[in-house]
């Protein structure tokens, strides 16, 4: 083998790069992290069922924003037959009171930074 040393260094770099998540998790103790979401105040009642919300809540919020801001349509009948106000701060966050223990749990886990909070304030934060 010619230039064996250089080739071995290259292979070593390749192995380190490909196994880096393993070392990172070991160093940060990240692999056994469990997500625990705070229960909603009103139990299971929601505008949509929880499985749908888990995957599609961002679409719903986007739709709500457009309907409220552009069409001034502030209310809708949820999938459970109850009328809801289309509002992140007043509807969603009235049940899921604690942003840190609900929204942020998954968002932080998945490295997502939604821009909701660039306009909306978290209700709890302004209360004295």
């Amino acid at each position: 083998m010619y230039n064996g040393g250089k080739v071995l260094i290259g292979i070593l770099v390749f192995l380190v790069l490909i196994s880096s998540p393993l070392w990172y998790n070991m160093a940060m103790d990240g692999s056994d992290y469990q997500i625990e979401l705070e229960k909603a105040v009103r139990g299971d009642d929601c505008v949509r069922d929880s499985a749908w919300m888990k995957a599609n809540h961002m679409d719903l919020l986007n739709e709500w924003r457009d309907q409220v801001v552009r069409n001034d349509e502030r209310f809708e009948i949820g999938s459970d037959g109850v009328q809801y106000e289309r509002s992140l701060s007043f509807t969603c966050l009235s049940c899921h009171e604690n942003k840190d223990k609900f929204c942020d749990r998954c968002h932080d886990y998945l490295g997502v930074e939604p821009y909701c909070w660039e306009c909306h304030i978290v209700p709890k934060e302004v209360q004295p």
């Binding site: 998540p21 990172y24 990240g30 992290y33 932080d108 998945l110 490295g111 930074e113």
Partner: peptide
């Protein structure tokens, strides 16, 4: 990489936000 590591480093989130720059 964010799916394989926990906690997600902030530079990765920043990179992703830049990727979605046009919002």
């Amino acid at each position: 990489c964010k799916y394989f590591i926990e906690p997600v480093p902030s530079w990765l989130v920043t990179m992703q936000n830049l990727d979605g720059f046009f919002q």
